[in-house]
């Protein structure tokens, strides 16, 4: 993964964007860098970056989310001062919600992001997500997101997982899929994500993660 000031995280919903974004933000903060997380999810009502408000505050990570995220009001309102966040000199991670629909919200910021320059847009894939099990389908969703937001991806994050049931074999069985997505899209694999004990030796660009997005009965 490149060390860019701005990282935009997209993907088919349920691929694990939020969990990846949380890991990335915590790593940036652990390096002693200033980090801001922007929850741009206007699609999903629950299980989103805004759930981590407490943890972020503890680690000194700033969080911007749609005003009504996690409230009872079903109105996606984007009050994100992206220009000033980027001008501030710190790092920023944007978690973009749900498919091409969610990426429309990102489109509004496309001119600012393009002008800023020091950014990467990473497409999170999960071989076990029902409708993107074929590499061609995953690439199609990726292109739909690009079309919808007017920005191009720069790399792929292989975040293949079966949630709590993920084993090393689960991740190993996804490596060929990730290579195929990379070949079809012409983009490099920037990271293979896996929790402790599930990372195969042969995985490219290993990125150890923790599973923060979980259910109450797993906590």
């Amino acid at each position: 993964m490149d060390n860019r000031k701005l990282t935009i995280v997209t993907g088919h919903y349920g691929a694990g964007k939020t969990n990846f974004s949380v890991n990335l933000a915590l790593d940036i903060a652990a390096r002693g860098e200033k980090c801001t997380v922007i929850d741009l999810d206007i699609v999903n009502p629950y299980f989103r970056t805004a759930d981590f408000t407490g943890m972020f505050a503890e680690k000194g990570i700033s969080l911007y989310a749609p005003v009504y995220a996690n409230s009872n009001l079903d109105i996606p309102s984007l009050n994100i001062p992206l220009e000033s966040i980027l001008a501030d000199g710190g790092y920023a991670v944007i978690d973009v919600g749900g498919d091409d629909e969610g990426a429309k919200a990102l489109g509004r910021f496309a001119p600012v992001i393009t002008a800023f320059g020091d950014s990467q847009m990473l497409y999170v894939i999960n071989r076990y997500r029902y409708l993107t099990k074929e590499a061609a389908d995953a690439v199609q969703v990726m292109r739909e997101i690009e079309y919808s937001c007017g920005l191009l991806h720069t790399g792929i994050i292989n975040n293949s997982s079966l949630g709590a049931e993920t084993t090393e074999e689960t991740v190993r069985s996804s490596l060929a899929f990730a290579e195929e997505v990379s070949r079809l899209s012409g983009l490099p694999i920037c990271a293979t994500c896996a929790a402790e004990g599930a990372m195969p030796e042969e995985a490219p660009e290993k990125y150890p993660i923790k599973r923060y997005v979980r259910n109450l009965w797993e906590k």
Partner: peptide, 14 residues
């Protein structure tokens, strides 16, 4: 083979 699905998607596919 298992897939990762949202509850709502599983209802629909089923």
């Amino acid at each position: 083979e298992k897939s990762l699905m949202k509850g709502n998607e599983a209802l629909a596919e089923a």
